[in-house]
Design a protein around this nucleic acid. Structure first.
Lengths: 226, 226
DNA sequence: ATAAATTGTCAAGATATATTGTAGTCTTTA
DNA sequence: TAAAGACTACAATATATCTTGACAATTTAT
């Protein structure tokens, strides 16, 4: 379920967009001005922003700049006027794409997915009954909880959220312990072992998924190497 | 200097595009049909493809699919008709963006730069189904994994990323082992042998691509000597 | 055709890395 | 403040990789 922030001063437009996107597996939140949008962006996490550039108060350009200032979230501008200069301005301010109103809804969807294909943040992820949930702060297999320590939880979450991607020990330390950490590389191995032990006891075939990449580090894969 | 491949059946269009892009620090190469385009893509490396979808013979869709099959290079489709369905089709085939002819040249430039801005340095390369992926730390042929050791993986990646370029043994040692390495030249041969063995077993015609340059070293070529 | 030079092959020893066992130290919790 | 839990470290063992040298095969030059 991808989360989208809709920003438009017309309530009707917000409703229409939400009505269209929800069946396509998008969770929508609405903001009718720039301040509201910024506040939501700070509080929640979104996967994409759909931004109408014609708004009262701080306009779309300003908001676009502001958003780009604080994150790399994909932005699609919605514009009522087909004015090339405006579009260029938006793209230069950091928007990733634009669409002209009134627009074909399928095209909007295609463009959103083209953008999202490049990134996919998640707060929960499940594979073959093994579920990692950051909000519940819990790892479960077939509904039964597997008790993990904070480091263990962070590590398996990182790997599950980035399947197939190899993480070197140094990189794991940076991402889980923090950049200034003095922790040694062998320590990572210890945590790996503990994670494997605990999950193995649950019955989940952890050794098919949590893979050692010899000479490099570790990664999560979706299927045993065939 | 970014390299762009222009694909269009109209010579005049190719010239116009090149004339416009060159002053903006783009090196342009031209192809007037799909085969020519594919050949250039095999021989050279590009940062972006500008692709007219209306062409004789293999059409733009087919070419787009073909390109996406072998690389992740950004593709902008150029279309004469403002037909929404076509645009969606293109995006779903893997194009990254489109622009409608006749177009504002500034907009084209803005779109090109928007795409290039989010393009990371090449971490993966594929040829004829043989895919080297640094993030997955994995070499696959037709989806099946070929297990390599770190040195082997580094070497084939280096060669594949620099097709047609000969690397002397000394140079390979510098680049893979590091400048201070005391490793002897014969060692390179051993790794080469192991790489060839492993890849040959996968079914990929490695001996057509991984070439010994007698008296010098090794290189990767895209097609058998011809 | 022959010799010289270069590359290919192989397997064993040397080296490097990962796993596991054990234990000490630090942090959190009750 | 004591106990439990979490984190880190070290050492022993297991496993995988790298290197090397001798010889075979191939290519090149005469």
């Amino acid at each position: 379920m991808r989360k989208v922030l809709l920003v438009d001063d017309e309530k009707r437009m917000l409703d229409l967009l939400a009505l269209y996107l929800q069946p396509h597996n998008y969770e929508c939140m609405k903001a009718s001005d720039a301040n509201e949008a910024l506040q939501l962006l700070e509080e929640k996490s979104f996967d994409l922003v759909l931004l109408d550039i014609m708004m009262p108060g701080m306009d779309g350009w300003e908001l676009c700049k502001e958003i780009r200032n604080m994150s790399d979230i994909p932005i699609i501008m919605v514009t009522a006027r087909e004015q090339k200069a405006d579009i260029i301005k938006g793209l230069k301010l950091g928007a990733d794409d634009y669409i002209i109103k009134p627009f074909n809804e399928d095209e909007l969807l295609a463009r959103m997915e083209a953008l999202l294909r490049r990134q996919a943040p998640t707060h929960a992820i499940e594979w073959n009954g093994l579920r990692w949930d950051e909000i519940k702060y819990e790892l479960t297999y077939q509904g039964r909880s597997i008790k993990l320590t904070p480091k263990e939880f962070a590590m398996i979450g990182l790997l599950m959220k980035n399947p197939n991607q190899v993480f070197e020990r140094e990189r794991l330390i940076e991402l889980i312990w923090g950049f200034e950490s003095e922790t040694g590389g062998r320590t990572v191995d210890s945590h790996v072992r503990n994670i494997r032990d605990k999950i193995r006891q649950s019955g989940f075939p952890i050794d098919d998924h949590f893979i050692t990449v010899w000479g490099i580090g570790y990664k999560w894969i979706h299927a045993p190497h065939g």
